[in-house]
Structures are given as C-alpha cells and as structure tokens.
Simulated assay, not measured.
Amino acid sequence: MSLRREDLAAEGFEVLLQQLVPAGTLDFLSAEAREASLQAALAGAPAGDIWLFGYGSLMWSPAIHHEGHRIALLRGWHRRFCLWTPLGRGTPEQPGLVLGLERGGACRGLAFRIDRNRAETELRLVWRREMLTAAYVPRWVTLETPGGALRAITFVINRSGARYTGRLDETVTAAAIAGAAGHLGTCRDYLRLAVETLQSHGIEDRRMARLNELVARLNAT
C-alpha cells in the first residue's frame, strides 16, 4: 500500500490500514466523523478555488488533481517532527516520527490550487489521508505567495492527541527517524524527501537540513 491516488480512493483503504496495527493502537476516526470534519471545513471556505497548503509529504506526493501550485509562506506556524506514528513510517514496536505544524515561527511550503467544482471530491481523498485519526486539526490559514495573499486549508498538530510528542530534543528526534520504518518505507527517507523537495523549490529550512545531516551520520555508523 502507498499514498497513491488509487490507494486513497480504494473502498477498503481504511480497513486495510486498520489491519496493519493491533486493535486500539490508533485512534481511527469513523467515516461519519471524518465526513463531518470535511463538511465543516468546506463550510468555512472562501469563494473560488480551494487552496491546500502542504508542508510535509503533500509537497512531493499530493495524490490529488490540482491546477498548479505556488511557493507559500505561512506565518505563526512552523514545521516540526512532532507526531509519533506506528504506521506508514514506523511500527508499534518502533514508532517513527512525521511532521506537523506547531505554533510559532514561520514555514514555507507549497500551496496547491484545486478547482472548486471538484474540490469536495479531491479534499475527501486528502481527509482519508490526513484525518484517518485525530492526530491533526484542519485549519484555514492565510498564506503569503508571489501572486498575493490567499486563504488555504492545512493540518496543524493536535496537541491533545495521544501521539503528540511535545518538544523533543534534536538528538532524540534524529535517533527515532534513523531507526524507524513501516509499510511506506523508512522514516529517514521521509525526512530526505522533505528536504530534497524544499531544496528543489529554493526553500531553505535550516532545521530540517541539519536534522537530515544528523540522521545520515547516525545511519552511516
């Protein structure tokens, strides 16, 4: 299983994921709760096409139909490895870490434009990916882009969630990333892809680059 569009759209996607971890390991949302979350977000959408802000795996693998993207700056939030995952890039025995948005600072990423006429269909796939559990909270934010300011939907970390890490020391973060792997691959590849994608768009994130170097050194020993 991967995060390809066809996998996200498959009827049994959630069931397959639930079978990959012991019962009770993850706080899976019901389909009804997830749909209610999506509809609440759509009710707060501005007029026109929908913009989706990606700061992690959405940047290199959006898996949705979109009309292009812009480099975007989000103020007031920063990208951080702050979510333990026993699935995807880790296991229950050795959880990995994935990115979330934490309060404070700023973050550059990619804003994807989704045609309003098919926004609900496309965002439903995004919700199946990002909102399978209660790890994130959908939030409308204001982005600064070369084409002007725009409102976009993104996913910030749920600090009340059971898998929220709090502020981990960089060495602890690096060690966890260096050793974890799951059905989607290694956690270190997740970090590497994030760094490479940022660099390919001319986006500098010194914290991420430093962490990538530290993880590489750990895996080389």
Rank of each mutant, 00 (worst) to 15 (best):
L198E: 13
S160L: 09
I114K: 04
L123T: 02
Q199C: 10
I114A: 04
E170I: 12
T173V: 12
V156Y: 05
Q39H: 10
T25S: 05
E204A: 13
L184W: 08
P46Q: 03
A43H: 12
V137D: 08
A149E: 14
T85M: 00
G166W: 11
W51G: 04
W77L: 13
V15S: 06
A162T: 10
E170N: 08
R103N: 14
L26D: 00
R75T: 13
I64N: 03
P95V: 05
G90A: 11
L184C: 09
N219F: 03
L214H: 02
E130P: 01
R79A: 09
A162E: 13
R124K: 09
R163V: 01
A134R: 11
S160T: 15
H69Q: 10
L17S: 01
A216Y: 00
G54W: 01
Y190M: 07
E32L: 04
P62Y: 06
M131L: 14
D115C: 12
G24S: 02
P46I: 11
S57P: 08
L26Y: 00
L38V: 06
M1H: 15
A33L: 04
L123N: 01
G56I: 04
A162Y: 03
L193P: 00
D27M: 01
Q94T: 14
N158G: 11
N117Q: 15
G96C: 06
M131G: 03
A47E: 11
Y190K: 04
E11G: 07
S200I: 13
Q18L: 01
N212K: 02
A174C: 05
R4F: 10
R80C: 09
E14Q: 04
T221N: 15
L74K: 05
A216M: 01
L73G: 08
I153C: 05
Y190V: 07
D189I: 05
S37Y: 01
G24Y: 01
F53S: 08
V172Q: 11
E32A: 12
R151P: 02
V137W: 06
E120L: 09
D27T: 02
R118W: 07
L143H: 09
